[in-house]
């Protein structure tokens, strides 16, 4: 990690050498945060999840801004948020304004993202902004954190903001697309990221190779995993999420589990959980044992019941 202090619980735990887990919350077209807060509550109860990512309009859809849910998760639940911010919808002025607002609200982690293009979302006719790209946004955050200024060097009244920020990487990149992915991450490391959270990985060998490549950078990496709550979610993920493909046998097993337990909710849950645990338990254990990954970003959105069976053996983080 850079010389920058660890301001967040997440970065502090990584600095202490703990193998960390982060979860994920996805505010959608909602007027009520109770489900998000319930999910956060369930994550907190496990004591294994140190922070929860709060997504910012994934797939380019118009959802609730991630700022307020991030704040509410910290304020109402007491679980640290990793506030996801894309550069798709805001220019540098709006990004700056939101970051200082988030800093005042006590947010300690930002995950910088480019953001899926509006052409993929539910407002396809909209203008995507991309005034800054995600690397330039990282540079802007570095100025705010290390120098206490905005992008143009104007001083921030009250000093420097105390936030750690990360970037994302795609662990599924294979040659010849692996090198540009690794070099791209290098630019972000150069402009000051504190941590990396990757897109979800299903192929252990590909993921391990990717982590090995990232070892050249002095930045901790949390590998993304995505437990599959249902066959429908797995299918959607496989079909629509850029760069992610769910193994065919896993898809088949989930489909069969749902078919075999039609009408039996309890039986279906048990069968689906068993498949996920059989796949992800050895996966996570091997990552922890054989790589330098600092932890796992577990994107089990609204699938909290899997956390304890999957992560119960790991040390408490909170």
């Amino acid at each position: 990690m850079r010389k920058r202090p660890a301001f967040s619980q997440l970065c502090k735990a990584i600095k202490e050498g703990k193998f960390v887990f982060t979860g994920e919350l996805e505010p959608k077209k909602i007027l009520d945060l109770s489900e998000i807060l319930h999910s956060a509550e369930e994550m907190k109860k496990t004591k294994k999840i140190i922070a929860a990512n709060v997504t910012d309009g994934p797939q380019g859809d118009a959802y609730m801004s991630s700022l307020v849910p991030s704040y509410m998760v910290q304020e109402k639940v007491g679980l640290e948020a990793v506030w996801q911010m894309t550069v798709r919808d805001r220019n540098r002025v709006a990004l700056f304004g939101d970051v200082i607002a988030g800093a005042v609200m006590g947010l300690k982690n930002i995950l910088t993202l480019t953001g899926d293009h509006t052409a993929l979302g539910d407002h396809k006719k909209g203008k995507a902004v991309y005034d800054l790209d995600s690397t330039q946004f990282c540079e802007m955050l570095t100025k705010m954190i290390d120098e206490g200024t905005d992008y143009e060097g104007n001083e921030l009244v009250g000093g420097k903001i105390e936030i750690n920020f990360g970037c994302v990487a795609n662990p599924n990149a294979l040659p010849p697309y692996l090198e540009p992915e690794i070099l791209k991450v290098g630019r972000k490391v150069e402009v000051g990221v504190d941590f990396i959270q990757t897109q979800t990985a299903f192929d252990i060998d590909v993921a391990k190779n990717f982590l090995k490549e990232l070892e050249r950078y002095p930045v901790p990496v949390l590998l993304g995993v995505f437990p599959l709550k249902s066959y429908g979610i797995a299918w959607y993920f496989d079909k629509y999420i850029p760069g992610v493909s769910v193994p065919k046998d896993l898809l088949g097993a989930l489909k069969k589990a749902e078919k075999d337990n039609k009408g039996d909710k309890k039986g279906k849950y048990a069968a689906l959980d068993k498949i996920n645990i059989e796949f992800f338990d050895p996966f996570i254990k091997e990552i922890k044992k054989t790589t330098k990954a600092a932890g796992i970003h577990c994107m089990a959105v609204e699938y909290e019941r899997l956390f304890m069976p999957l992560l119960g053996d790991y040390e408490d983080l909170i």
């Binding site: 798709r88 993202l113 480019t114 899926d116 293009h117 052409a119 993929l120 995507a128 991309y130 790209d133 995600s134 690397t135 330039q136 994302v168 795609n170 697309y177 540009p180 992915e181 791209k184 630019r187 897109q199 850029p242 760069g243």
Partner: peptide, 13 residues
């Protein structure tokens, strides 16, 4: 498509 100066982004497959 995003006019990025430091690409590629995660939307490249």
């Amino acid at each position: 498509a995003k006019g990025l100066h430091n690409g590629p982004c995660g939307g490249q497959v």
